[in-house]
Design a protein around this nucleic acid. Structure first.
Lengths: 139, 139
DNA sequence: TCTAATTCCTATAGCGACTAGAGCTTCAAG
DNA sequence: CTTGAAGCTCTAGTCGCTATAGGAATTAGA
């Protein structure tokens, strides 16, 4: 019926200290304790933790997760805010992709400039790392 | 002839505390000091700092930067190691791009599932955040 | 029922790469 | 010579965990 923290951890793949950390940060409610002061979780805690984990896997920062949880506790509110969080995160992810693609093209150029067959003094890799002026775009 | 730390900062765009931090971490050599204990840098420090900055902008972790600096001080060594660092970083960047692209497609799906026109109870965004089972691939 | 192995508890510190602030000293311009 | 900007050191905070220490509770097997 109830889970220990270790069982919850096994069910969700979230490490034990991380679960305690989420509790401290207010993402998970503090569960009931046994007489010996150990945490005992219910099924609803399991669902909540899976929710948190999935949000985190999707890259949401903890404050956004907190907002979503808060929101989900007011079933009659309009869900525009949840929508907004998803859209914002999507925007952030797209920005990061663009940035990384610029890096990729720079690094490709840098790595291609050298086959590792000469000495450091004449190494184009080191030159390229030294000099931003050689880059095609800003990063 | 010599720069103060503020001038070095303005020249490179690296913040003053960050310069001191790089010194503490051994990326920059400790410069000479004035009688009043203030740092005075030379042109070679400027070049070194630009090198560091550029590496960091390209996403190299500090240990990799340290390795490159170490390397650049042995001009007769073969530069295979520098090449390797560039290639490894490239590989890491490509992995991150792949990962983010998966997130992007999930988030697109999630964000599209809702126009923000209903209440929380029936919100597909919240449902999608709750349930990894709805996702097409792992992330 | 006893014991031993495992799991649990709290509290604290560490990671990477900075950034911010307090409280004080030195420098440079007028 | 004064004044205000810029420098100094030291400490703590950021984010999202993760690791460790030292002890208490639980559980499985004999």
């Amino acid at each position: 019926m109830d889970f220990s923290i270790g069982e919850l951890s096994r069910e969700t793949g979230v490490k034990v200290p991380t679960i305690r950390y989420y509790e401290k940060e207010g993402l998970l409610e503090a569960p009931l304790r046994t007489e010996g002061n150990q945490r005992r979780y219910r099924h609803s805690d399991l669902e909540r933790l899976r929710f948190i984990r999935h949000c985190r896997d999707l890259g949401l920062p903890m404050p956004a997760v907190r907002d979503l949880i808060e929101l989900s506790q007011h079933p009659d509110k309009p869900c525009a805010e949840a929508d907004l969080i998803a859209v914002e995160q999507l925007k952030a992810v797209r920005q990061r992709i663009t940035h990384l693609q610029r890096l990729e093209s720079e690094l490709t150029r840098i790595a291609d400039s050298c086959q590792g067959d000469h000495t450091v003094t004449e190494c184009n890799v080191l030159r390229a790392f030294a000099d931003h002026g050689l880059c095609k775009d800003d990063h």
